[in-house]
Simulated scan of single mutants.
Amino acid sequence: MKLILAILSNDDSPAASNALNKNGFQVTKLATTGGFLRAGNTTLIVGCEDEKVQDAINIIGEYSSKRTEIVPSTASYDIGRYASFPVEVQVGGATIFVLNVEQFVKL
């Protein structure tokens, strides 16, 4: 048995979790916050049999697209004050961890 932890954008999580549910996966959603943009993320927790891991990864990948956004930045120092200017960053996609499960108990 495996435990999948998938971190994806709040924008992508409803479609990904619905698709996982429709394909027989049970999903737990956690609200999380990313470090770089301090933006909200969702972490999906999925337990499944070893042979279904790739199916779950494929579904998550299908619904977590990468895209670019323009965000304000305060990285420039200009004559005694910080100058804010927009920066293009890549957002979306998914970071997925697959862990071995030694024991699973459902009460």
Results as ranks from 00 to 15, higher is better:
Asp50Gln: 14
Glu51Tyr: 14
Val46Leu: 05
Phe25His: 00
Ser13Trp: 01
Ser65Asn: 13
Ser84Leu: 15
Phe25Gln: 03
Ala19Trp: 07
Ala31Cys: 08
Thr95His: 02
Gln90Tyr: 07
Asn100Ala: 09
Asn41Pro: 05
Glu102Met: 12
Val91Lys: 01
Gly47Glu: 13
Ser84Trp: 07
Ser84Asn: 14
Asn23Ser: 10
Ile45Arg: 08
Lys2Pro: 01
Ile79Thr: 15
Gly61His: 02
Gly35Cys: 08
Leu107Gly: 11
Thr43Gly: 02
Asp78Trp: 15
Ala16Pro: 04
Val46Ala: 03
Gly24Val: 01
Ser76Met: 14
Ser65Gln: 15
Arg81Ile: 10
Val98Ser: 00
Asn23Leu: 09
Gln54Pro: 02
Val91Glu: 09
Ser9Pro: 07
Ser73Asp: 01
Ile70Thr: 15
Phe85Tyr: 11
Thr42Gln: 01
Cys48Arg: 00
Asn58His: 01
Gly24Trp: 03
Ile96Thr: 05
Ala83Met: 13
Asn41Thr: 02
Lys106Gly: 00
Ile57Val: 15
Arg67Tyr: 13
Thr74Gly: 14
Gly47Pro: 04
Lys106Cys: 00
Ser17Thr: 09
Leu20Gly: 01
Lys52Ala: 11
Asp50Ile: 11
Lys66Met: 05
Gly47Phe: 08
Ser76Leu: 14
Ala75Ser: 13
Ala19Cys: 02
Gly80Arg: 10
Cys48Ile: 06
Ile57Met: 14
Thr95Gln: 12
Ile4Tyr: 00
Gly61Tyr: 01
Leu5Gln: 07
Ala16Asn: 03
Ser13Gly: 08
Ile70Asp: 14
Glu69Thr: 03
Gln103Gly: 00
Thr95Cys: 06
Val89His: 04
Lys29Ser: 14
Asn10Val: 11
Gln90Ala: 11
Ala94Trp: 02
Phe25Ala: 02
Lys66Ile: 09
Met1Ala: 07
Thr42Ser: 06
Glu88Cys: 06
Leu37Asn: 04
Glu62Tyr: 00
Arg81Asn: 13
Glu49Met: 12
Ile45Lys: 07
Lys52Phe: 14
Ile70Lys: 15
Leu99Pro: 09
Gly93Asp: 09
Lys22Cys: 00
Lys52Trp: 15
Ser84Asp: 12
Gly35Thr: 10
Val53Arg: 03
Ser65Gly: 03
Leu107Glu: 11
Thr68Leu: 04
Ile45Leu: 15
Leu107Trp: 10
Thr32Gly: 10
Gly92Ser: 06
Gln103Ser: 12
Ala31Gln: 12
Leu30Ile: 11
Phe104Val: 14
Lys106Arg: 07
Ala31Gly: 13
Glu62Arg: 05
Gly40Ser: 09
Ser73Tyr: 03
Leu8Trp: 07
